[in-house]
Amino acid sequence: RALPCPAHVVFRYQAGREDELTITEGEWLEVIEEGDADEWVKARNQHGEVGFVPERYLNFPD
């Protein structure tokens, strides 16, 4: 997929490290980079905060 792209959060995730982003179910993010580890992506939330989130917690519109 082309980046950046929108993504809808389907599961809540609490950041466990400083470089991760806490996300809430129902929130929209902008995915800006593929992650440095499998199944992680770097995203920006509506407040401009950036961090890594688990890709499987997101839904990408067609």
Results as ranks from 00 to 15, higher is better:
39 E>C: 10
25 E>F: 05
5 C>F: 06
55 E>W: 09
41 V>Q: 00
62 D>H: 13
13 Y>D: 03
34 E>F: 15
46 Q>V: 10
6 P>W: 06
28 W>L: 14
57 Y>M: 12
30 E>N: 08
17 R>M: 10
19 D>Y: 12
50 V>Q: 10
7 A>N: 04
60 F>P: 04
22 T>S: 14
22 T>L: 02
51 G>E: 01
4 P>I: 05
12 R>K: 15
31 V>G: 01
49 E>F: 10
7 A>H: 00
27 E>C: 02
17 R>Y: 04
21 L>Q: 00
27 E>L: 00
12 R>Q: 11
52 F>C: 08
33 E>S: 14
39 E>M: 15
39 E>Y: 07
22 T>K: 02
21 L>D: 01
57 Y>N: 15
57 Y>E: 03
27 E>R: 02
19 D>L: 11
29 L>S: 04
28 W>A: 13
45 N>I: 08
13 Y>N: 05
55 E>V: 14
19 D>W: 05
14 Q>E: 12
48 G>K: 06
4 P>E: 06
14 Q>C: 05
49 E>P: 00
42 K>L: 09
40 W>N: 06
20 E>V: 03
2 A>M: 15
1 R>G: 07
10 V>L: 09
61 P>W: 09
18 E>S: 10
5 C>S: 04
7 A>Y: 04
26 G>S: 04
48 G>P: 03
16 G>I: 10
55 E>Y: 08
8 H>F: 03
1 R>D: 06
13 Y>F: 11
1 R>S: 09
7 A>W: 00
14 Q>D: 13
51 G>Q: 00
33 E>F: 02
31 V>K: 01
35 G>N: 07
34 E>T: 11
14 Q>G: 05
47 H>E: 09
54 P>W: 10
60 F>V: 09
62 D>N: 08
35 G>Q: 05
32 I>A: 01
20 E>T: 06
13 Y>G: 05
62 D>M: 08
16 G>S: 13
46 Q>P: 06
7 A>E: 02
51 G>I: 00
52 F>A: 07
18 E>F: 07
35 G>R: 11
25 E>A: 09
1 R>I: 11
54 P>N: 15
25 E>S: 15
15 A>K: 10
57 Y>I: 06
8 H>C: 07
55 E>G: 09
18 E>A: 07
18 E>R: 09
45 N>K: 05
46 Q>C: 12
14 Q>T: 08
33 E>R: 06
20 E>C: 10
25 E>I: 06
19 D>M: 10
53 V>L: 03
31 V>N: 00
61 P>N: 12
54 P>M: 13
58 L>D: 02
15 A>Y: 01
44 R>T: 07
39 E>R: 13
30 E>L: 07
20 E>I: 02
43 A>D: 01
38 D>W: 09
15 A>G: 10
29 L>K: 00
19 D>V: 15
22 T>W: 00
30 E>V: 08
23 I>V: 12
28 W>K: 13
10 V>R: 10
28 W>N: 12
51 G>S: 01
51 G>P: 00
5 C>N: 00
38 D>V: 11
26 G>E: 04
36 D>N: 10
22 T>Y: 01
33 E>H: 08
47 H>P: 03
30 E>W: 08
38 D>A: 14
60 F>S: 04
42 K>Q: 10
62 D>S: 13
4 P>A: 04
5 C>A: 04
12 R>P: 10
32 I>K: 00
48 G>N: 09
38 D>E: 15
43 A>N: 02
42 K>S: 06
20 E>D: 06
38 D>Q: 13
38 D>S: 13
42 K>F: 08
41 V>K: 05
18 E>C: 11
50 V>A: 08
33 E>Y: 03
48 G>V: 02
16 G>E: 15
59 N>Y: 12
36 D>Q: 14
11 F>N: 14
46 Q>D: 08
23 I>M: 07
56 R>K: 14
62 D>P: 07
22 T>R: 04
50 V>I: 07
2 A>T: 15
59 N>V: 11
33 E>T: 06
57 Y>F: 13
54 P>L: 12
38 D>K: 11
46 Q>L: 11
4 P>Q: 04
3 L>M: 10
35 G>D: 08
2 A>Q: 13
11 F>W: 11
32 I>P: 02
29 L>Q: 02
47 H>K: 14
29 L>W: 00
19 D>P: 05
1 R>E: 05
25 E>D: 12
52 F>V: 10
62 D>F: 05
4 P>H: 04
16 G>V: 15
50 V>M: 10
53 V>Q: 03
9 V>K: 03
42 K>A: 04
36 D>R: 12
59 N>A: 14
23 I>W: 03
21 L>T: 00
36 D>H: 14
46 Q>S: 12
16 G>M: 13
27 E>P: 01
32 I>W: 07
50 V>P: 01
48 G>M: 06
6 P>V: 07
44 R>I: 12
58 L>I: 10
60 F>Q: 02
14 Q>K: 11
29 L>P: 02
12 R>M: 11
3 L>Q: 05
14 Q>I: 07
58 L>C: 04
35 G>Y: 07
43 A>S: 03
54 P>Y: 09
51 G>M: 01
44 R>W: 00
36 D>G: 11
60 F>C: 07
30 E>Y: 07
58 L>W: 01
34 E>P: 10
55 E>K: 12
47 H>F: 07
28 W>T: 11
32 I>S: 01
39 E>H: 15
59 N>E: 14
22 T>I: 01
44 R>L: 06
57 Y>C: 15
36 D>E: 14
42 K>W: 08
17 R>C: 14
48 G>L: 05
47 H>D: 13
53 V>I: 12
26 G>T: 01
56 R>D: 11
6 P>K: 08
6 P>A: 10
40 W>V: 10
43 A>Y: 01
31 V>Q: 00
5 C>I: 05
8 H>N: 05
17 R>K: 13
52 F>E: 06
47 H>N: 12
32 I>V: 11
30 E>M: 10
7 A>S: 03
9 V>L: 01
38 D>Y: 10
47 H>Y: 08
15 A>N: 05
26 G>F: 01
52 F>S: 11
52 F>Y: 15
34 E>V: 13
8 H>G: 03
9 V>R: 01
36 D>K: 15
50 V>L: 06
59 N>T: 13
28 W>M: 12
11 F>I: 15
3 L>N: 10
11 F>H: 14
30 E>K: 06
22 T>M: 03
24 T>Y: 09
56 R>C: 12
4 P>R: 04
41 V>Y: 09
26 G>D: 11
3 L>W: 04
54 P>I: 05
9 V>S: 02
57 Y>W: 06
35 G>E: 05
25 E>V: 09
59 N>C: 12
43 A>T: 05
